[in-house]
Design a protein around this nucleic acid. Structure first.
Length: 714
DNA sequence: TCAATCCGTATC
DNA sequence: ATACGGATTGAC
């Protein structure tokens, strides 16, 4: 007879309802009654489990048998422990199914850790999409999405998530979803009084504003990119938008950049929805409180969730709206693998849920502009006439501006214009905001004549000075900039753009004797200041809100922000200027802004006209020309040189993928960029993931960090 | 010819 | 990580 190259057992149907027999005890130790006695459940005996291992080639579900004893607890979303490759590992139960496609023997679930479903099916779908988009693993995304378990919190009776007080009459039992609160208050009118001196129409100040709010209330899915007016009480607007979907019985989710913004939104939501209708999630909470609030969302005890970046992955029932404020803030970029950006997570979520989306800020990012130009979202902006009513008067004072003759002001290197603006505001009893760049910017290279950042002739990357004496070289592809010529004016001379020197509060104090000086910065951020004459010195991002607005806002050393060696230097500078300038009184009430940069620069023009959309359109057009995100897709691979090379070998790059570099990334590491078109972005991520899987399967040494569309392209 | 050992690969 | 299958080795 001819023994066919043995297919082991007869190829019968793949393990349908497997015989109880495979429940043999491990290790041939016949003493383990517990294991031997287990039988699979009669219905849906197979659990699809995602094991919590970091290896890319194991990033898929594995099937396990559900023992009868665990039948009730083994529901989708619960944490389980399973034996995987000989050891016990944690995992999440994704779903129960009737049969497995796996044609080997199935092991039993070791145990259900807790009957609490912490992985919402919608979040599971989202996490898969985010992992795919960023060439990362499901497990990595879940680590960001689900806080560590806190057993005591899980056991305690449900509390009021906002106050921590025990619930009103009777706490609903944990596993059952409690009923939605009967009649949530309908925020027909803004709960907050108008704060702007120039009359405040809330969403009515924006062309499509009322229609947007109405659509939210009608359960539709409008999508908008919103450029806020100066002085806008954005937390109140966000609260109204979230309130509108809440009133329609649906859930809402909003993400902000930092704890200060979160506190403001939290307060506005409490005013609009009443206490206990929402939770605020942030990494700053302790483990117990963090898990307590997460559970309030997961159990659907609240339908509105706000928080910092990780909250973009929080469970929200029947999602009606996702929103993000100030999407240009780099805090929205997650620093842990797979490095997702909160904006991208929320937009993906809006797609999956078919819900509304709101991307808001005083400025607009190139990504926001892309959403508008692609027709994905509507533009939500004010009429020019409304802008004129709300905007402060903005004046540029360039590098060559005349220094104030007043000795104190000269010592503080204040131009006359700035000094006068400050003096007149203080004289009127109003506070003055002084924004000073943080110190320590990378030495970049700019055109000596026009100041435009110098770019590589080959790949358009930014030029930098590797060392104080070295020759300028591209920070991306590493090529030396031999015969550089400025793209803008053609000049051949270059200069190092100096690092921003911190102006001290004392210097300013001397310029205005007798005026109190407050500071707000890294160590000690002020949330608000009173409406009285004072100098408020802050670093970008730490601007306190002034009751009634600032009489003057001085943006010092603004040019230093513009010449940073960063793709987003202009966008970032403008974002910081707008954030500060938005706190000034309207021009009609004497509000003035002085920006220390050349009035001819586009960034300064945008501020003068309070037109962030115009700048964003220019910015996006430029990115398109240069082949930068969001017009193109770029992935960066960082690691030891041989490890990076090994990964590139293992990856079947899409055709037309372009390699830039590698360049030295310090610490014996190097960085390689891969550029493709936007349309090829998904294929690029999939290819990189597959390459990483091949490497991890063959236990390749030397990790390589893969980042898709990293913020810092240096 | 068989058992001990090594190596590569899959991990339900 | 570990456990298994198949290949390899070496002693009888």
């Amino acid at each position: 007879m001819a023994p066919v190259q043995a297919d082991r057992p007869p190829p019968e149907s793949p393990a349908l309802i497997p015989a109880p027999e495979p429940a043999r005890p491990p290790k041939a130790a016949p003493g383990r009654r517990a294991a031997a006695a287990r039988e699979p459940t009669s219905t849906l005996p197979v659990a699809r489990v995602h094991v919590d291992v970091p290896l890319p080639h194991l990033d898929r579900p594995f099937d396990y048998l559900v023992p009868t004893a665990a039948d009730d607890a083994a529901r989708p979303g619960v944490r389980v422990r399973v034996r995987f490759a000989g050891q016990l590992v944690g995992g999440y139960l994704l779903e129960r199914v009737a049969s497995s496609g796996h044609d080997g023997r199935l092991a039993f679930l070791d145990r259900v850790v807790s009957p609490e479903p912490v992985l919402d099916p919608d979040v599971a779908r989202l996490a898969r999409a985010v992992a795919d988009r960023y060439a990362g693993t499901f497990a990595d995304v879940l680590r960001l999405a689900i806080p560590p378990r806190h057993a005591r919190v899980e056991g305690e009776a449900a509390r009021d998530p906002a106050t921590g007080a025990p619930p009103e009459p009777a706490a609903p039992p944990a596993p059952a979803a409690p009923p939605v609160p009967a009649a949530p208050p309908v925020p027909a009118a803004p709960a907050q009084p108008a704060q702007s001196a120039a009359g405040d129409g809330g969403w009515g100040n924006y062309r499509a504003g009322p229609a947007f709010l109405r659509a939210l209330g009608d359960g539709k899915a409008p999508r908008a990119v919103w450029a806020a007016l100066p002085g806008e009480d954005w937390p109140a607007r966000f609260a109204e938008a979230l309130g509108a979907v809440h009133a329609a019985g649906r859930g809402g989710l909003a993400v902000v950049a930092d704890a200060r913004d979160l506190d403001r939104l939290d307060a506005a939501l409490t005013a609009t929805l009443g206490p206990g209708r929402h939770v605020a999630l942030s990494a700053a909470l302790g483990p117990a409180e963090r898990y307590r609030r997460f559970l309030a969302a997961a159990r659907h005890r609240v339908k509105v969730v706000i928080g910092t970046r990780a909250a973009a992955l929080a469970p929200v029932a029947d999602l009606g709206l996702v929103a993000i404020w100030d999407d240009g803030d780099d805090l929205h970029a997650e620093p842990r693998a797979p490095y997702p950006h909160a904006r991208q997570v929320l937009l993906t979520r809006a797609e999956l849920a078919g819900c509304a989306a709101l991307v808001g800020g005083f400025t607009r990012t190139a990504e926001g502009q892309q959403l508008i130009e692609a027709g994905w979202a509507h533009e939500l902006g004010p009429d020019r006439a409304v802008v004129r009513v709300h905007a402060p008067r903005v004046a540029p004072a360039g590098d060559d501006a005349e220094l104030a003759r007043d000795p104190g002001a000269a010592a503080a290197r204040l131009p006359t214009l700035a000094w006068r603006a400050a003096r007149s505001a203080l004289g009127a009893g109003a506070p003055v905001l002084v924004q000073v760049p943080r110190r320590g910017y990378l030495p970049a290279v700019a055109c000596a004549r026009c100041g435009a950042p110098a770019r590589c002739r080959h790949c358009q990357g930014p030029l930098g000075l590797p060392s104080a004496t070295g020759i300028a070289a591209c920070r991306w592809c590493g090529r030396a900039a031999a015969d550089h010529k400025c793209d803008v004016c053609g000049d051949r001379r270059m200069r190092a753009s100096v690092t921003g020197a911190g102006r001290t509060a004392e210097e300013l104090g001397r310029a205005f004797p007798g005026v109190p000086v407050r500071t707000s910065g890294r160590d000690g951020v002020l949330a608000t200041v009173p409406a009285e004459a004072a100098l408020v010195v802050c670093t970008p991002g730490a601007e306190p809100v002034a009751a009634g607005g600032y009489g003057a806002v001085l943006l010092l050393d603004s040019w230093a922000l513009l010449t940073r060696a960063d793709l987003r230097a202009t966008e970032e500078a403008v974002r910081r200027w707008f954030a500060a300038a938005a706190l000034a009184r309207p021009a009609g009430a004497g509000g003035q802004v002085v920006v220390m940069a050349d009035g001819g620069l586009a960034a300064v023009q945008a501020l003068l006209r309070w037109d962030a959309g115009w700048l964003a359109a220019r910015e996006l057009a430029e990115r398109r020309e240069l082949g930068f995100p969001p017009a193109a897709r770029i992935a960066s691979l960082t690691g030891a040189p041989d490890a990076v090379a090994d990964l590139v070998d293992a990856v079947a790059l899409p055709p037309a993928a372009e390699l830039l570099g590698p360049v030295d990334a310090g610490d014996g590491q190097e960085r390689l960029l891969v550029r493709t078109s936007r349309a090829t972005g998904a294929a690029l991520a999939a290819a990189l993931k597959a390459g990483a899987a091949v490497r991890s399967a063959r236990k390749a040494t030397g990790p390589v960090r893969i980042q898709v569309d990293p913020l810092d392209l240096l």
